[in-house]
């Protein structure tokens, strides 16, 4: 499988504060990986770096053979990397449909369109004229996912999609994931809910205090390994 994304000794910092230390990671075509780690481990920082919101040295992030670490976020988006941000972050001034249309702004060709997103999440079609803020948390998450899909990305990154949602809603969203990834997309799933993340991924990385503390195939990984990588202590 050709490599889609690789992180090469990625360091990321906010001003004087260094959040990531030499993170190495690879992601192959069509692969789904899970990123786990405690709060403050650097997961969101990593996604912000990849999506271009944080500037890095160009070669530290390579996408399809092209160094993208120094590119602006909108340029990265046009290359086919999409992010479903933590906490949804819909545009409150935009209706549901406008949020989705904005996601399609990059205009990449591919299977996803307004109709396909509405097929995936029919409730959004009913609510399409409503303000995005008037929806429930789960429905907002559907908009956030749909908005990212509208870009027809090659790589989509999900940041804490189950955070703050009811279990039944989380289940319905995770049920929809195979349908999304089945379209040949490569995905990176950042989750607090470790079991959920492992259930849909083939490999897992654990971050601890800005460093990769575990890299394993999901089927091989043990509970103890995760505990140690997650908390940094031997259970």
């Amino acid at each position: 499988m050709p490599e889609v994304l690789s992180l090469n000794a990625l360091d990321a910092r906010y001003g004087d504060f260094q959040a990531l230390f030499g993170v190495d990671m690879t992601l192959a075509e069509g692969e789904v990986i899970a990123i786990i780690g405690a709060n403050g481990a650097g997961k969101t920082t990593m996604l912000r770096s990849i999506s271009g919101l944080l500037k890095n040295k160009p070669g530290q992030i390579v996408y399809r053979g092209r160094p993208i670490g120094g590119l602006r976020a909108d340029v990265v988006a046009h290359l086919g990397i999409a992010l479903v941000p933590e906490g949804r972050q819909l545009f409150p001034s935009l209706s549901v449909e406008e949020n989705l249309l904005l996601g399609g702004k990059v205009g990449r060709p591919g299977p996803w369109s307004l109709e396909k997103v509405y097929d995936l999440f029919p409730i959004l079609k009913e609510r399409r004229r409503q303000a995005s803020t008037s929806l429930s948390g789960g429905q907002q998450q559907m908009v956030a996912i749909g908005r990212a899909l509208m870009a027809n990305p090659d790589l989509v990154m999900f940041d804490e999609i189950s955070l703050g949602l009811a279990p039944v809603v989380i289940k319905s969203i995770y049920d929809a994931l195979p349908g999304i990834v089945g379209e040949g997309m490569t995905a990176m799933i950042v989750e607090q809910d470790i079991l959920k993340a492992l259930s849909v991924s083939s490999r897992v990385y654990c971050l601890q205090e800005g460093r990769v503390s575990l890299e394993a195939r999901t089927e091989d990984v043990t509970h103890d390994q995760i505990t140690q990588a997650y908390f940094g202590v031997v259970a």
Binding site: G52, L53, A77, Q89, F91, S93, L94, K105, A151
Partner: peptide, 14 residues
Amino acid sequence: RAVSDNQDIAQIMG
């Protein structure tokens, strides 16, 4: 409106 709401996310949307 999108940029006014949230510059970072608007940028991520291209």
